[in-house]
C-alpha cells in the first residue's frame, strides 16, 4: 500500500466569482506535483483560474445508509421557503 502513489481530489474554480467545483482525481506523490498534474490534466482547455487539491483520504463522507435520516427531515419544512408566506400583491415585490 505504501508503495502506491496517493490519490488526490481536484477542485477547479472556472472563473473568479464562482466557487471551486470537484472535477476529478489524480495520483501524485505530494501536493506540489498534484497541483501541477491537476493543471496539466484538468485545465488544458481553459477550464479554470484556480486549483485546489485535497488528499482523497482527507475526505470524510456522510453514510448513504443514513441519507433518509440526514436529509429527508429537511425536505418538508416548507416555512423555510419564501413561497410559504402570503403577501398581498399590492405590497409589491418582497
Amino acid at each position: 500500500m505504501s508503495n502506491e502513489t496517493p490519490l488526490w481530489e481536484v477542485f477547479i474554480r472556472p472563473r473568479n466569482g464562482l466557487s471551486h467545483k470537484h472535477c476529478g482525481s489524480l495520483h501524485a506523490a505530494d501536493e506540489v506535483l498534484a497541483l501541477q498534474a491537476a493543471r496539466d490534466t484538468y485545465t488544458r482547455r481553459g477550464e479554470g483560474v484556480s486549483i485546489w487539491v485535497v488528499p482523497s483520504k482527507a475526505i470524510f463522507a456522510s453514510d448513504p445508509d443514513q441519507a433518509a435520516e440526514n436529509f429527508e427531515p429537511g425536505v418538508d419544512k416548507v416555512y423555510r421557503h419564501p413561497t410559504f408566506y402570503d403577501i398581498p400583491e399590492e405590497v409589491g415585490h418582497m
Partner: peptide
C-alpha cells in the same frame, strides 16, 4: 515513482 514517494 519511488523517488517521488521518497522525496515526499
Amino acid at each position: 515513482r519511488e523517488a517521488a514517494l521518497a522525496h515526499a
